[in-house]
């Protein structure tokens, strides 16, 4: 079902079920999932507003895919509630599947089918108007540079082409809720930009979108809001500027000295006052400060007095990786 039809469906469904219209496109309440003794999700409370791109950021094993699989009714939660456009994913799974589309992390299967026939099958399952189907498929395949490969067997597609085909399924469907699980892993840089632009286009056409990723650049390019997931729990959720502002200090200053950084120099710099967080390794000092323009002159003077010669200074904004590190104590690429 396309989003143009599903706005009314959403209201109808909620009225039928006697619930008040839900403000969220997606809502989970105390959602948990266990695999044996392993907790994949632990009491997750998570919401996505209608018409936004919500990026779920987390390392492998953080519970991203489990959450998406529950939302699209493939997995059942161990406890808690999950709703998609107000519809409970456990109680009314078929209705949920009618309003959502998912591009899976691993594009597998359909080994002996051609991309064009895979998309035709997908379009027919989601009742895409047969009169428009062929044009829509052709346009989407051309947009994602799959048209030349339309008659190859799926098993002969490259990893990047297979991922683009996953994305194409959701694009032709134009669902009310579109889910992309690591949509650009294995895709080259040019292909990534194409996919990202198409995802934003889908949002602009009215779809609500969830993207799960562990790529900082992808998150920064796409996100209206970011939810950081760590060990099956929501750590924080906000817009990227607000998340970056939340780190102690808003700027990162990296200073290369000609000699190794001494403990005394670090002490002196800590004594300069203000909201500052310092770390050093070898000749490099890294400082998170609130205002680099105030702190750098003080730092250069203190270094001069301490006899430490500065080779170079770089001032950058914190990345989402820094945000993740700040909130979880671990880097995105660290093992769970």
């Amino acid at each position: 079902m396309s989003h143009s039809e599903s706005d009314s469906t959403f209201l109808t469904l909620t009225r039928i079920n006697g619930r008040s219209p839900n403000l969220f496109a997606v809502e989970t309440i105390n959602l948990s999932k266990k695999y044996g003794k392993t907790d994949a999700l632990r009491g997750l409370n998570f919401t996505v507003n209608e018409g936004e791109i919500m990026v779920i950021l987390g390392p492998n094993g953080s519970g991203k895919t489990t959450l998406l699989m529950i939302l699209c009714t493939i997995l059942k939660p161990t406890s808690g509630t999950a709703r998609v456009v107000g519809i409970d994913v456990v109680e009314e799974g078929t209705k949920v599947r009618e309003v959502m589309g998912i591009a899976f992390q691993e594009a597998r299967g359909f080994w002996r089918h051609k991309p064009s026939s895979i998309l035709k099958f997908h379009a027919s399952m989601f009742d895409i108007d047969p009169a428009k189907r062929q044009d829509l498929i052709e346009r989407t395949m051309k947009d994602l540079e799959l048209w030349e490969s339309r008659d190859k067997m799926f098993m002969h597609l490259s990893g990047g082409q297979a991922k683009r085909l996953e994305t194409a399924k959701v694009l032709i469907q134009q669902p009310k809720l579109a889910i992309f699980d690591e949509p650009t892993s294995q895709v080259d840089l040019r292909g990534k930009r194409k996919i990202w632009d198409k995802i934003r286009e889908l949002r602009d056409q009215g779809s609500t979108i969830i993207v799960a990723t562990n790529e900082v650049r992808e998150a920064e390019y796409l996100a209206d809001r970011v939810t950081i997931l760590h060990q099956g729990q929501r750590v924080v959720c906000d817009t990227i500027p607000k998340l970056k502002d939340a780190i102690a200090g808003g700027d990162i200053v990296e200073v290369d000295f000609e000699d190794p950084v001494s403990g005394r120099l670090v002490e002196d710099l800590n004594g300069l006052g203000g909201d500052v967080s310092l770390s050093s390794e070898g000749n490099q000092l890294r400082a998170k400060v609130s205002r680099a323009e105030d702190w750098v002159p003080k730092m250069t003077s203190a270094s001069y007095i301490a006899g430490a010669k500065i080779a170079s200074i770089r001032i950058t904004e914190p990345s989402l990786d820094d945000v993740f590190l700040h909130f979880t104590g671990k880097g995105l690429l660290d093992q769970p």
Partner: peptide
């Protein structure tokens, strides 16, 4: 890997 896809269909 086809089963998750089939299970996601309406």
């Amino acid at each position: 890997g086809e089963l998750p896809y089939f299970l996601s269909l309406p």
